[in-house]
């Protein structure tokens, strides 16, 4: 096994160009599990943990650009205000040790539908920045992830960053697992309110081959709010609308049975999470007007 450890992004991209078969590793919280289980034995491993450019984040007019190597722990500590949904999702990831090592870049690279970082990225329509020696391209996250553990990354590319809008309203992330900590999602749900645009953005995790956006449910709630002038009055949404939202989110889920839970339960739980999350986010919005 060849082990490459470039000290800069430039050299990392050159290494990737020279060794397109190289498997990138940053926190190693996914890859090392695969190796320990003997499920995969990469010929070449490209260690990105020493690349300073990947460990930075910055504000870019209304957006935040987060390097692929920024750990969950730093997202929680440093980006809780700008990206509250992603920070909430980060808090549900693994144990403190995992959060100290794991990165959203890794979640993107693995492209598992159960990745906790993905629903917030989907909900806020984040873009993934893919770099190679030939340049950089930006791909919407929903186009980047093409299937379970499949994505649009080319062999000579590395995920360098993702970019998403700063929160303009309350956000939520909720995840069902059979244990109260350190658990892979049975299903999850991310939600963002964008009052300035009158938008509700939502995404289901771990209940389909990829994270799934819920446009019909979102449009429904937006309609309820517009009709009642709720964005302005900050009045209550009403239980019926919350329930209907939950049902419409359920309708979008496409889960399977596996060791972690049955499809029927996932559908059921997604509905509950959607209803509750919207209620919490809306309550927060209402309190914000006091």
């Amino acid at each position: 096994m060849e082990f490459l450890r470039p000290p800069s992004l430039h050299e990392a991209l050159e290494a990737k160009a020279a060794h397109p078969e190289a498997v990138p590793i940053s926190g190693g919280t996914d890859l090392m599990v695969e190796i320990n289980f003997d499920r995969g034995r990469p010929e070449t491993v490209l260690d990105l943990s020493r690349v300073p450019e990947l460990a930075e984040w910055e504000r870019e007019n209304g957006h935040v650009r987060v390097g692929a190597g920024v750990t969950y722990e730093r997202i929680i500590a440093e980006l809780g205000e700008a990206l509250p949904g992603l920070a909430m999702a980060s808090r549900t990831v693994g144990s403190p040790q995992i959060r100290n090592r794991g990165t959203v870049g890794g979640n993107l690279g693995t492209s598992s539908p159960a990745g906790d970082g993905l629903p917030p990225l989907y909900a806020s329509e984040a873009e993934v920045e893919l770099s190679s020696t030939g340049g950089t391209r930006r791909v919407p996250v929903s186009e980047f992830v093409t299937g379970p553990k499949r994505n649009a990354l080319r062999p000579d590319e590395l995920i360098s960053a993702f970019r998403m809008p700063r929160a303009t309203g309350p956000q939520q992330y909720a995840k069902v697992g059979t244990r109260n900590a350190m658990v892979i999602a049975v299903c999850s749900f991310g939600l963002a309110l964008c009052p300035e645009r009158g938008r509700v953005e939502a995404c289901i995790g771990s209940a389909g081959p990829t994270p799934i956006r819920t446009p019909e449910a979102e449009r429904f709630v937006e309609g309820v709010m517009e009709e009642g002038g709720l964005w302005e009055t900050r009045g209550p949404i009403g239980d019926a609308a919350l329930r209907r939202f939950g049902e419409m989110v359920q309708a979008a889920a496409r889960p399977i049975d596996d060791v972690r839970g049955t499809a029927a339960y996932r559908v059921h739980a997604i509905g509950v999470l959607a209803r509750r999350s919207l209620g919490w986010a809306w309550d927060e919005y209402r309190r914000g007007g006091e």
Binding site: Q172, V176, V183
Partner: peptide, 14 residues
């Protein structure tokens, strides 16, 4: 941490 679901934020008492 004192609610079912723990840190996964599934209920605030509901």
């Amino acid at each position: 941490r004192e609610l079912p679901g723990g840190v996964s934020n599934t209920t605030h008492g509901e």
